[in-house]
Design a protein around this nucleic acid. Sequence first.
DNA 1: TTGTAGGCGTTATCAA
DNA 2: TTGATAACGCCTACAA
Lengths: 340, 340
Amino acid sequence: MSKPATITDVARLAGVSITTVSRILNNKPDVAQATRQRVLDAIQQLNFTPHVQAQRLAAGKSQSIAVLYPSDSLGFTELEFEFFVGASQVATKAGFLFNLIVTPMNEQTLLNLYRSNQVDGVILMEVHLNDRRVAVLRERGYPFVLIGRCTENTGLSTIDLDFETAMLLACEHLYSLGHRHIGFTNLIGARAGYGPAIRSLWGYQRACEQFGIEPIYRELKPTIDELYRATEALLDEQPGMTAMITLHTGPLVGAIRAAQNRGLCVPDQFSIVGILSDQMAQFISPPLTAISFPAQLMGSRAAQMLIRKLQDADYEDKQVLLKPRLVIRDSTAPARTSER
Amino acid sequence: MSKPATITDVARLAGVSITTVSRILNNKPDVAQATRQRVLDAIQQLNFTPHVQAQRLAAGKSQSIAVLYPSDSLGFTELEFEFFVGASQVATKAGFLFNLIVTPMNEQTLLNLYRSNQVDGVILMEVHLNDRRVAVLRERGYPFVLIGRCTENTGLSTIDLDFETAMLLACEHLYSLGHRHIGFTNLIGARAGYGPAIRSLWGYQRACEQFGIEPIYRELKPTIDELYRATEALLDEQPGMTAMITLHTGPLVGAIRAAQNRGLCVPDQFSIVGILSDQMAQFISPPLTAISFPAQLMGSRAAQMLIRKLQDADYEDKQVLLKPRLVIRDSTAPARTSER
DNA sequence: TTGTAGGCGTTATCAA
DNA sequence: TTGATAACGCCTACAA
């Protein structure tokens, strides 16, 4: 583990000044072809790589971004992984380091991230309508991007799935299959202002009005058991219910099981629509009719926006809202008009 | 976005030298109580946070670790997410930055990671029996930890699941249920020396000998379709086969489906055992009897080992091998002695 | 086209 | 118990 070569070593070996080496490293013009070659040779020979800490200190940038994913939030879903991979790929390609921080941060630690120059910018996940983190960062003018969005997003860079439309689509699909009693089990947190939860609820409510159907609504923690019990309860209370939409990714297996345990065959007697990744939708039996959640895309777009923002002084903030897409698989079928 | 305060500002405000402030920041002894308080007040007042780049440059450490997960490797499984979360939590708690790098690296870029001081150490995933990355890093004496292991691990820090024993357990379970024709669909890559694949194969082979049963073996890419087709093919070719073990996490749904499509009820007429996270095992229908894969634990243990190694000069390398645990759920049942 | 010199914000080594 | 001062490795005016 001998000490890595420094720019000084290179300069000495090539018989030039440090400045010249630096110029070449940073692709500045005004270097004689011969000199450049000599320096490049020296670099090669010494296996030299610039010391990033030093570069960053001198340049005043950290060249790294972080994703803040408070892991206590909602338990496992398959989506996170895709977000991370998408963002990490983009970051690496752009020469940025990608930090994943799953420990929840308070206002202080969040600001320190910037002040201490650990990161140039962050991607915030699990965003609420009134997110303190957003308020704090916005006020200080620190660069960041949201996966999700707030109530007031002017001047922010955001990327989100249009959950409201997603719910409309889902309801429409079921309605067109003849379903008139459609339940919706939402993520917990709508009241707390958790974006996806509250917007889905709005969408559901709008759909109910639009189609003239009666809402059947629950909020749950995203565990299989919860969804299992809730589904059973709903089936009991709502004998007329022939279909369900759920925002919970994995646990929605609980819903399927509960239905099946009641002797209800999915989809022949009971239809289910989810919102989840295409991957996961196919892992489930039966393969799920679902709004697909393009998590990897969202992760990479978020990273792109952030990095551009960091590099372009006059980058314009954008609020990207992805149009949801319904993929019909095997968990939905026409409603039996007779009874359930 | 006013410039953050520096140590100089603090020193000036407190009326002491930079050195003194530095001492206090680093909890050195020999500072008068009164001085300390004065400096702390100044720090508070200025909202000062040390500039990490500068600290790291001066100290010669980057205080960050990275996980190298080449994302082209095997496609999605739910396990990665858990690895990352586990490692990230530990890193943050220890004051380290956690970098996730999913872009595959060649020898050069890997070494540059160290030389450029981006990271102090890395956690390698997707390890092969003869892993070039390991050879390269070991030779240079750079600190790293493996999730997985090689053929020769002396002097390395590794953590791995004992796949060989896992396969023995799985076979034993099925054998004790009366199954005598047990198929095994492995991850592709055994021949290429991919650790989990090859060790599982060894375990399976040992189990077959031990129980005197005939191996029924396939290697596949981890997609639902592949596993679906392979299972169908196996069912055709091996009319006596009543059970299957598979190393593929999600796609094993394909196996279940194929069996069911043949009119084989799982588990009554066909048993399946997987190796996957407890989470995922429950997402699947029927809930899967499986060797549980403690990914989050492995991630955090790996990070712990690495960080200790970085901090303790005389840290002893350990090769940790986790004992597998079989959790019996609803995908295995006694073999029908009659026929399938 | 090239080099000199100062600075980035810390830590570490000596003196005082 | 404190404080100069020299690193750390690189970048960047400015000068030559």
